[in-house]
Structures are given as structure tokens and as C-alpha cells.
Design a binder for these strands. Structure first.
Lengths: 341, 341
DNA sequence: CGTTTTTGTTGACTCGAGTAGATGCCGCTG
DNA sequence: CAGCGGCATCTACTCGAGTCAACAAAAACG
């Protein structure tokens, strides 16, 4: 039987290192941090050796207490199993890690109550900043964080408020271009599948779609409103199919919804893009492997995440909040009629 | 112009509360924690009022330092944008939150180096436990955590080591049942699409598939090895299509791979399940909305997560590690031949 | 050689909360 | 009324690391 009595956990502290190296604890700190004061090279060497000999690792919690900074960022998403938020979380985590920050993840499960709980929880934990993908489109939530001096960045908002940092895609223009592309395949009757948006403002995607229709002098298009997930898209698809005179193309506000919509179409035996052309929004990996592969508007997730991290850790407490809008790329695959085999 | 000079951050501490309530700081602690000593009801009331009046929130970092526990759990996944790991992360986060814990997420991006970095980072941050979905199938990584007294739970391992807590699905039996189900539709030639597994042991899914074939007295089946993602499945699909004599059914080791495999089949104009029947593993949401909807083996993600949290926070440091294996449910949809419209 | 400057090191205080041990107060009992 | 027990409260130390003021020793300067 192997000796597993490891539990004798000999927590090594700065003091132990100091003792072994024959110096004071202050010097140890100076060495570890390249600290505010110089240390003679010979002493540095002694300390370094003591550190490796004992396997000392500084206690991050103590540091956090003293410095008032945990080097932790929080991220709140409505649903991590949504591929778009997952890729966003991935990108944020990566950008944060590069700067030496860790990321707390909070999944709101589409509930405002849970979202609030996460936010207040993160605040209590003294995170240095929060990325918020809210389930709603206003920001009373942010005030609490703001009051506690926690920098917050709104992600994926369809309207850009000025009182707080916000980062998101250029919804209107890229949506317009996407719809215009459908038109370039000869479609005149282009419907919109639009996720529910709270608040009284128009979603940028809807606005872009309207602009495009107006621009091509088309009649007013149909709108199918549904939840922002696969089931919502499926449901919208069923309603679409029930129509007697169906639009020939659809612009859908997320890849996830598009996948659900496609399933409804397939069930009914309709072909994409021959019977109905489809264009969606987000550009998640899922869009590439659906059938047919989805033409979509790809958000520059990586860049947005990096900008967000910079906004949080590289910004003074007194600088005014900024809104940063990112251009998207039209990814043309089969579902719109391009790229035929 | 509104006065946004909020930055005067009046961090309220226990001391302020004590002063306002006219008591000592100890009493404040006792009230906040239902602390180890009693406090007279009248005094409690005074303290409570002072707390709300000042908007006091205890500093979690300080508490963590004193108590040696951060009330944070870490979770490391190979890729959060994989729908299965996303749902796992969601479940873990929810279970953790219910117990008052927050969850740090680390995405390894399929790299062992990054995984190690996360693990050591989490250890430095004094997390109370770690959920590890490793990119490899052995566990040298765990020793460091173990040495620092951090309880670790291995998730989604295809082999169950005894030296450390492990939680996972019952791979062998459920895979066998899945393959037997394909056989019950009349298939005799059933291939396997198997994700790459490091280590010298057989993946439980592969073992179950072999068992099923043996049980039905079938000839040895074909294996297509590929990476554990959509692209891998697509690639396997292309190789499958290149065969002159194709198996009539396929068992695929994850939903993600299955989605890629389906795309390859569609491209070639093959029908599922008529030309090729498909059965996959995991039971993520994605499987429900692919075309055709995937028959799959659903892992009880919620239960596994809850068991994991219990294993971490409800287990003494000296109790021996346990392996917990969970039964899976066969979800029959269209891709295997069931549920025809 | 005496004085200033520089450099290296240290002791001691700080962050904010948990809690053991000491202290004081009340009422009850003998 | 002394003595005791029980309760409420406070004082003071602790967790581990950051850093400043103070000091000592060495270097630079006149």
C-alpha cells in the first residue's frame, strides 16, 4: 500500500524563505516582484535558491488583499452552451490569461435574477472587471458595479449606451450588406427571423434588414420573432412553413437560430438554397458544419475580446467609458446560394 | 452634464459598521456570520441597520486569507466551444453556485501546456477544488494539485484511475447498447468513428462497440480515427465515403464529430438513415437540431456535476478518492432509423 | 580625512476579517 | 452580601504579502 499521507501540507510562506535565505521578509518580496527597492545580486541569488529549495509560491489571496486587486475578471453570459457565447468566453479567457488574469464564469441561464446574483457575487469577490452579456438590453445592473469601482464592459449589445464601456459588432451595416447579398442572388422577398430583444430600441440587425429592403425598393418584409436559440429558430421555421406564400430568402439573427430553422425546413423537405436561401449572423463554428453550411456574418470575436480586456485593465478609473464597434466579415457558403458544388 | 465623479470609492469596512453601530468589530463579524458567539437581539438589530445604512459588504478576499479557502472552484476544459464541455461547465457552475462557490474557467485549447498553466495558476489562486477535463488521458498533472492539498475531480475520462477522484459516464455498457440498437435495425456492418485517445488503454466507447459486434457474431468492424471535433468527424466522413464497400451504420464517439460526419454524407448526397444510420455519444443540445436529429447516448451531465461538487466540498482531506460512474440514457431520434415521420 | 550621497537591508505597519481569551455585567443562590 | 455562573462584549492577535521610514554600510566627493 503506497504511503498517501501527503496531507501534511507544509504551506511555505515568505517567512520560511526569508529564514532559509538569512534575510528579512521584505527582501523576499523585493526579489519576487522585482520590488520597489533594489536587492544586491548576491542576495537575490540566495533568495532565489531558497525559493526553489522550498517550492515557495506567493499567496495570491494575501497579495489581492493588500493590493485591492484580485487579478480576476468576471464574465456573465446568458447561456454558455450557446456556441457564440462559448467562443466569446474562450476568447476573453485567452486574452485575460495573456495579461495574467483569470476568469470567473457566470451562466445566467437566461434569467435576470441569476444574472444579478452573479454580478453582485463577482463584486463581492473584488474582481477587477466584468464582461457582461446581459439577458436584457438595458443596464440598471451596471450601476452597482460602477458604484463599487468595478470596470464593466458590455458585450454584444444591440444598442450602445454611452454611460458605460461597450463593445460589439457593427450590427446595422453588416446586416444590411448580408441582406443585400441575398438580394444579389435575385431574391426580392426576404424575411427576417429576429430574436426577442428587450427594451424599446430596435435591434441593429433588424434595422439593417429594413434599410436593405428599403434600399432595393422592396415591399415590407415579414418578421418572425422567436427566442435566441435553436428551439426558437425551429419554431420560427414552423411558422414560416405555414405561410401560403413564402419568402424566398431569410435573414436570421444568429447561427443557433439558423440551425433550428434549417431543421424545420429539412423536415418539410424544402431544399436550401434552392427553395429558401438562408443567411445568418455570428459566424460560430457551428455554422460551418451545418447542412448546408451557413452563409453568415462573422463577428471578430478575438479582437473584441482583446479590446475588452484592454478596456478593463488598461484604463484609468476616471477615464470616460468608450463604445467600440467592430466591423464584421461576410462569410459566404452554400446556404445563400454561393459556393455550389 | 451629470456628475460622474463617482470614483470617490468609499470602501466600507467592518470598522465603519462597528463605529456607526457603536459596537466592536468582533460583534459585527458575529452578526454577519451568525458567528461563533451570540449577540443580543437588540445589538444585532443595530448592527444590521448600520450594515444596510452603509451598504457594507464583507471583503471576501480578507475572509479567504484568514480562512484559507477562497470558495472558488476551478474548471479546466480542452475547448469550451465544444457543446458537450459547455454544457458540462454550465452544470458545474450551477452546482457550485448553489453551494456558494464561484467557478474559474480555463480553456486549454487542446494544449497540454496551456492545461498545465491553468492548473498551476488555479493552485496559486488557492481554489478549493478543480474539475479537470484533461486533453490527455493520464494524470501526472494532478500530482501538483494534490501536493498542495487541492481536491481534484477528473471528468470525462475514458479510463478510471484509482488514485484520484473521477466521475464519468458508463462508457462501455452504454456504447454496447447503442451499437446493439443499430443492430436491431438490421445493420450487421457497423463502423466506428473514434476520437483520438492518448494513453495505452482502450477507450470505453471503442470497447463497448467491440463487445457489441462480438455479441452479434459480426465480423470485425472498421474504425475511423480522427480528432474529437466537427472537423475530425467531417474528415472521417470523407474517408468513409471513399470506401468501395461501405458499412451501413456508424457509431460515433461524440455529437460534435457526428455533425461533421453528417455534413460529409450530405455533401455526397447520401441519405441518413436510409443509406447510412448514425448513432453518436454525449447528448448535447446540438444533437437535437442537426439534420436528421441524432440518436445519441445522453450523459447525465447535471448529476455528474452535482456529484463532482459534492466530492470536492463535502469530502474530508483524508478520505480516499472515489470513482463514480453514471448510467446513460439512449435517446432515439431519426438518425438511427427510429422516429420516422 | 570628513562629509555627503548612494545602496542594501530591516523592522514595523497595513490591507479586512475571524476568533480566542479577557473583561465586565447581570442575576441567582447559599 | 459574597460568590458563582452565564451571557454579552471587547481587545488583540492572526492569516501572508506589500512597502515606507529608518538605519547601516559602502561609495563618491570635496
Amino acid at each position: 500500500m503506497p504511503d498517501l499521507s501527503a496531507s501534511a501540507r507544509p504551506v511555505v510562506t515568505r517567512k520560511d524563505v526569508a529564514r532559509l535565505a538569512g534575510v528579512s521578509t521584505a527582501v523576499v518580496s523585493y526579489v519576487v516582484n522585482g520590488g520597489p527597492k533594489n536587492v544586491a545580486p548576491a542576495t537575490q541569488e540566495k533568495v532565489r535558491q531558497a525559493i526553489t529549495a522550498l517550492g515557495y509560491r506567493p499567496n495570491v489571496t494575501a497579495r489581492a488583499l493588500k493590493m485591492g486587486s484580485s487579478r480576476i475578471l468576471g464574465m456573465v453570459v446568458p447561456k454558455i452552451s450557446s456556441p457564440f457565447f462559448a467562443s466569446l468566453a474562450q476568447a476573453v479567457e485567452q486574452a485575460a490569461e495573456q495579461e495574467g488574469y483569470a476568469m470567473l464564469l457566470g451562466d445566467s441561464r437566461d434569467s435576470l435574477t441569476v444574472e444579478r446574483r452573479h454580478l453582485s457575487n463577482f463584486a463581492d469577490r473584488q474582481v477587477d472587471g466584468v464582461f457582461l452579456c446581459s439577458v436584457v438590453n438595458h443596464r440598471p445592473e451596471v450601476s452597482e458595479l460602477d458604484g463599487r469601482g468595478i470596470r464593466t464592459v458590455l458585450l454584444n449589445f444591440s444598442e450602445y449606451p454611452l454611460e458605460v464601456d461597450a463593445i460589439g459588432p457593427e450590427f446595422v451595416g453588416s446586416s444590411r450588406r448580408a441582406v443585400e447579398h441575398l438580394a444579389s442572388h435575385g431574391h426580392r422577398d426576404i424575411a427576417l427571423v429576429q430574436g426577442f430583444v428587450t427594451g424599446n430600441t430596435l435591434d441593429g440587425r433588424e434595422f439593417g434588414w429594413r434599410e436593405a429592403l428599403k434600399g432595393m425598393g422592396a415591399s415590407e418584409g415579414r418578421i418572425f420573432r422567436c427566442s435566441f436559440d435553436r428551439a426558437g429558430g425551429y419554431d420560427a421555421g414552423r411558422r414560416f412553413l405555414a405561410l401560403t406564400e413564402r419568402p424566398t430568402a431569410v435573414f436570421i439573427t444568429s447561427d443557433e437560430q439558423a440551425v433550428g430553422f434549417l431543421r424545420a425546413l429539412h423536415e418539410a423537405g424544402l431544399r436550401v438554397p434552392e427553395d429558401v436561401a438562408v443567411m445568418s449572423f455570428d459566424g460560430s463554428e457551428e455554422s460551418e458544419f451545418s447542412w448546408p453550411p451557413l452563409s453568415t456574418v462573422r463577428q471578430p470575436v478575438q479582437q473584441m475580446a482583446e479590446a475588452g480586456v484592454r478596456a478593463i485593465i488598461g484604463t484609468g478609473r476616471d477615464e470616460p467609458p468608450r463604445t467600440q464597434v467592430f466591423d464584421c466579415e461576410l462569410v459566404l457558403r452554400r446556404s445563400c446560394g454561393c459556393d455550389e458544388p
